[in-house]
Design a protein around this nucleic acid. Structure first.
Lengths: 206, 206, 206, 206
DNA sequence: GATGAATGAGATTTCATTCAT
DNA sequence: GATGAATGAAATCTCATTCAT
């Protein structure tokens, strides 16, 4: 029976930890800094998380939860169904823009997990099972649809196409974030537009 | 006057540090583990590097050195000149395959620097100046060439095309490495082939 | 909001550090020994002092504080005022005896600071500003009074007389302390008596 | 059979050690810095001194040697004999000026020994036996002479007078050295003049 | 529940000393 | 004799975790 207040405290700790992890990395973060950032005593952290590592597990669980909310096959199918009148390109542009916004909003949590999973087997296997596999399912689903449409599109292994698309998408997204210090960056809408246009033009028969 | 012996010791420490950094991250690595891995006393490390952070700087310097060796505008131009009879697609396939091999060989050092630059301003600014800018120059150079060839290619801002291409390339490369536990992974040659074909088909006029 | 308990811990550490510093010198002292002497864990020291050097700074601050308490121009003037009926010699005997008692009580802290200021510029400049200058002001004040009394005293530069007096006083004080292993040492009262008598007889006109 | 070269090396090490000890203290000095200052390899030090502590013992021995050269009862008596026509004040002024010059020349070595003897019993007992006792003997000798001259001088315990005189002398000498940063310091000749005049006037009968 | 002082294991770093060349 | 690379014990310092209040 979590009280309002204690829920609030846990949240403060979680947010503080996420901030500090994303700025210093898990190992570089100290519970002392997290407690200061959260505005609680250092000991309080350990009433909510048994160990520092446990906070990281909490971050992972939150990541999975958020991911499942915004990225799942059902909602993808729903979007496609609801936009039957639009071309697949148009639909994907909508999806990617949405994904980029989610990406931006959840950048810190993603960054932390992507970095730390290298060093923590439990985080890694959970990531593969709960995130990566879902990600692959979704992109595979899209390009399987296209493969069916044999007349218009080239006959390329849909899994390979799916791989390249995913690589391109995340490559472009991460590249944008790594250029945050630049001021004349191109708008994301324009970049997605061109990315999708080139890619789909590329996989079409002439 | 570095003796053979001492050069050897420094190398052992460097390699050990690189290995441990890539397995545990900079903060998660301990000088004790590095010394064991290198087969030297812990104190010996500090004859070669003033501080642990200094080892990371050494890794960065080595990265820059290696990068400048294999990735510079001159050698890129040379490859293009030497392959004048081949199509731009063919040339890029050669370049990308080469880059992937370099990427694989230098994966650890790249991974370490890409991750750690988030947490160390000095590493980050050096990375931007010495690596990223050069990378951008090179890909921009390639797509500027194509732009000139107006008849065949669509009229898209070459910098934007260059961005998307780089994103795709690194996205695909990193995706491969993050899937190392998979056994049925597609050969890199095939993946590059399709990637280039789709991308160049995509930017051509119909 | 320092609790009683933590104030007590800091004091234990301070006293232990002072003892060990005075027995081994700053560089020769180890935080391990200080912690044992203080009866706390070694790590506890660093909750109260950021670095070992910081403990020395703490010692310096304490020295200044104690010095300002017992040695300031106002209280000197007060003593003189209150003893108007006594001769200057009698007054100075009272002052010197008091100073010697303070000297004995604060011998360790004085010794540590006097020695260490040679090696630490920050300690030295603080010493000069906060201690030596005040010391000079006070002795100068006394001998300026005497100078005014032209009839009785020789016409010697009061600053020079003041210098020699200070030198004699501290020389005698330190000589006593450096002979602690001797058992037949003359009582301080007698030594001060003779010192003052000789000195004032010496500066008087015949 | 010390060769010229090796004698030279030992001397270089000795001088370097003395310099570094006087700047950093014995514990604060490192053999690495001494070797750099001496212009020899670190290992070379240990061919001439078994341990770092041994260098300090060497410094002590050198101090004793120098002291015995310039300060011994025989030469004191000789000076007095040779200046029979001069007053005791005049003779002491000559002696003190000479002692101050020796003091200045040997300041570093004195400073090091005076500081370190607190922390090293062997150094301390050697100091007491070889230096302090001789020092006391000499000043006692002088004031015993004066005591004999009962008519002119007050009847004060010659040992006490001797103590105060020594305290004054070293107090004044050290005070001068501790004011090295000042530029308008009074000449030593003048200070000695006044010091002796005041002191001897002070111990005379009216 | 919350606090924050205290802990102590372990991390980084220093440095006198050794020894192969 | 001289060198300086290597050592490892010990020093300084950090920090996750505990626990009395």
């Amino acid at each position: 029976m979590k009280s309002e207040k204690s829920k609030n405290t846990q949240e403060k700790i979680f947010n503080a930890a996420l901030k500090v992890f994303s700025e210093k990395g898990f190992s570089g973060a100290t519970t002392s800094e997290i407690s200061k950032e959260a505005g609680v005593a250092e000991g309080t952290i350990f009433r909510y998380y048994k160990t520092k590592k446990d906070i990281l597990r909490g971050v992972m669980l939150e990541y999975v939860e958020r991911f499942e909310e915004f990225a799942n096959l059902e909602s993808l199918k729903k979007i496609i169904r609801e936009n039957k009148d639009k071309s697949i390109e148009e639909i994907l542009k909508i999806i990617l823009l949405d994904r980029y916004k989610v990406f931006e909003k959840n950048y810190n949590i993603m960054k932390v997990i992507h970095y730390e999973m290298q060093f923590h087997e439990d985080i890694k296997s959970m990531y593969i099972e709960k995130i990566r596999e879902k990600e692959y399912q979704m992109s595979n689903y899209i390009f399987k649809q296209i493969k069916i449409n044999k007349e218009e599109y080239k006959n390329i292994d849909y899994k390979l196409i799916s791989r390249i698309f995913r690589g391109m998408m995340f490559g472009v997204f991460f590249q944008r974030r790594s250029e945050m210090e630049k001021d004349n960056i191109i708008p994301i809408e324009k970049e997605i537009d061109v990315m999708i246009d080139v890619f789909f033009n590329g996989i079409k028969k002439k």
